[in-house]
Design a protein around this nucleic acid. Structure first.
Length: 212
DNA sequence: CATGGGATTGACT
DNA sequence: GTCAATCCCATGC
């Protein structure tokens, strides 16, 4: 797969967020098509970069085309693509994928959690968790990083070079039907409709947008 | 140095 | 629908 060049990300974050729909995210031979994104920009308070340059936001203010990976709620790693020129804090959050390559590996990573494996290993069947349906593999920002094996170590890495890479739209995804909606899970700037989803796609996270 | 708050998920009522 | 898990880091004293 030919990865998108850094210049692709050196544009207004809203444009990139829309254009990333239909593109492919790949990590170590496991991949999926982007079906949901959100845009974040330093000018609005829901963006981490709103507070300015700190150790945490260093990557956000860095060059475009890098991965911004951070820990959410102490548990999940969330993947973003840094956008706009260096010095401007902006990024696209990858919220959901339509799984395409390496589904067995995704099921393995998502099927048994550390907690269920460890704490519940009582007398009988230790591994008793259900195997998630393929719909649950990548239908959320924390799920897809787990399915692809993406962790905080990838923060700052180059999305054009890897190990996490993003490639252009392929056949079947050249002109996806995109619906806009309000962003999910935030408490500030909730009125901005900076969420982009593929209409009708099963792998879009909840809440599903109207018509999506 | 102490505190508080998440760009979430899964289990449970 | 409710709720807890769990860690990084921004903020304030």
């Amino acid at each position: 797969m030919q990865a998108l060049p850094p210049e692709f990300y050196d544009r207004p974050v809203l444009e990139v967020a829309r254009d990333l729909i239909g593109c492919t995210v790949e990590h170590r031979g496991v991949a999926g098509v982007v079906v949901e994104t959100e845009a974040y920009h330093e000018s609005e308070p829901a963006c981490h970069a709103f507070v300015g340059l700190t150790p945490r936001t260093r990557t956000l203010f860095g060059p475009p085309g890098r991965a911004y990976v951070y820990r959410s709620y102490g548990i999940h790693a969330l993947l973003n693509a840094v956008c706009e020129p260096e010095g401007v804090g902006a990024a696209v959050l990858i919220r959901a994928l339509d799984p395409t390559v390496g589904l067995e590996e995704m099921r393995a990573r998502r099927g048994v959690t550390a907690r269920s494996n460890g704490a519940r290993s009582g007398g009988r069947g230790a591994i008793d968790r259900h195997s998630p349906s393929d719909r649950d593999l990548c239908s959320g920002p924390g799920k897809l990083t787990q399915a692809l094996g993406i962790s905080l170590e990838q923060n700052g890495s180059d999305l054009s070079r890897g190990p996490v890479r993003i490639g252009p739209r392929t056949d079947g995804w050249l002109e996806p039907a995109v619906v806009e909606d309000a962003r999910v899970g935030i408490t500030k700037a909730v009125d901005l409709r900076w969420r982009f989803c593929v209409a009708g796609n099963r792998h879009v996270s909840r809440p599903r947008p109207p018509g999506g």
